[in-house]
């Protein structure tokens, strides 16, 4: 029982990341009809916004180390600490949450630039062409990051107050269900972002127009609404969602330039399982596959079917594609 609960929890935070990326992918596919292989790169870019923010906050100067008296020792101290003392160190400690605020405008700009600069010209081309050009773009973005940050993963720390774990089991009378705080926060964060996106699409006039455009782009255009402009903003929104997923994921998985490619493939499978163009399906499938993956990595399961933890997501996706190609929640 404890083990099962723990696996569900383990699956949920990974599922949250899958769901957020898949949500953006589906949004872009549903509105613009574009298959975006560079979406994983946006997730990775978000993670590197967090890395850059931390780097900027910890710009340091050499300061005499007073604790060592018998020779002249120097230590690197961030300017923020020199100027503001404890407040400064607190700001550095909270660099990942701070990155969220900075990542929103950056990712929005990146997304809009990408749509206006490249994707726009590929609406009328075949899906294969879209896949290939965005695959090229993903390589380029990855290489730019590699050139600036190196090829090694760069670990990021969560704020100290939530660095530990929480004993969830104690609250509901079970033993040994200990779960890191940050993963709980990630789950809550991804749920609120998903809620935000759905609220935006269903409760605002803008969202209404976008949904109408998803159904029948031509009619909406004939009504005198500039649907293309709104779809551009939707692309920006998808980039922000992917970027935020990346920012918050950094304390869980140290980002490297290749993480986008890994997550891209899995998120595509999530989209397929949920049903191409179905937003709710993408979210549900994201969590579902996350949980399935963590269940299949339990020792008891691995003993029965060796290697299942490596391939479970692919297997599910293949089965769905072959037997229910419109996906679990897709409409025909």
């Amino acid at each position: 029982m404890e083990a099962l609960l723990l696996q569900v929890l383990n699956g949920l935070d990974k599922g949250g990341a899958y769901a957020l990326i898949a949500l953006g992918l589906t949004l872009v596919f549903g509105t613009l009809g574009v298959v975006n292989f560079a979406h994983g790169a946006l997730f990775m870019l978000g993670a590197f916004v967090a890395v850059s923010v931390e780097k900027v906050l910890t710009i340091s100067s050499k300061v005499r180390d007073e604790s060592i008296t018998f020779f002249e020792a120097y230590k690197e101290t961030p300017y923020l600490e020199i100027w503001w003392g404890d407040t400064g160190s607190a700001i550095i400690d909270w660099s990942v949450p701070i990155s969220i605020i900075i990542a929103i405008p950056i990712m929005l700009a990146v997304g809009i630039a990408m749509e206006r600069g490249l994707i726009k010209y590929f609406y009328k081309r075949e899906h294969a062409d879209q896949i290939l050009v965005t695959f090229g773009l993903a390589i380029v973005i990855g290489e730019i990051i590699k050139a600036n940050f190196g090829a090694n993963a760069i670990p990021q720390a969560a704020p100290e107050i939530v660095a530990g774990s929480v004993d969830i089991g104690a609250a509901i009378g079970l033993d040994g269900v200990v779960y890191p705080w940050w993963r709980m926060i990630y789950l809550a964060f991804s749920l609120s972002i998903i809620g935000g996106v759905f609220a935006f699409l269903h409760m605002t006039t803008f969202g209404m127009v976008v949904r109408a455009g998803m159904h029948d782009r031509e009619t909406v255009g004939l009504l005198g609404i500039n649907i293309e402009k709104r779809f551009t903003i939707v692309f920006g929104l998808a980039a922000v969602v992917a970027g935020l997923a990346g920012v918050m994921y950094t304390p869980i998985l140290p980002p490297d330039y290749n993480m986008g490619m890994d997550f891209l493939v899995l998120s595509f499978l999530v989209v397929v399982v949920g049903g191409m163009g179905s937003l709710g399906g993408a979210v549900a499938a994201g969590f579902l596959l996350g949980i399935l993956q963590s269940f299949s990595s339990m020792t008891a399961v691995k003993e029965v079917i060796p290697g299942i933890d490596q391939v479970i997501i692919y297997l599910v996706a293949v089965a769905i594609l072959l037997f229910r190609p419109r996906g679990l929640f897709g409409k025909d």
Binding site: F268, G307, Q310, Y314, V318, L321, L322
Partner: peptide, 28 residues
Amino acid sequence: LCLRRTGIYFSILTLAFAQMSYKLAYSV
């Protein structure tokens, strides 16, 4: 199996099978 689908679904199916082979070659 893959040729039961066309377009992007075919691409994703081949991708999934190849990744499965890769992961299995590394593990079991």
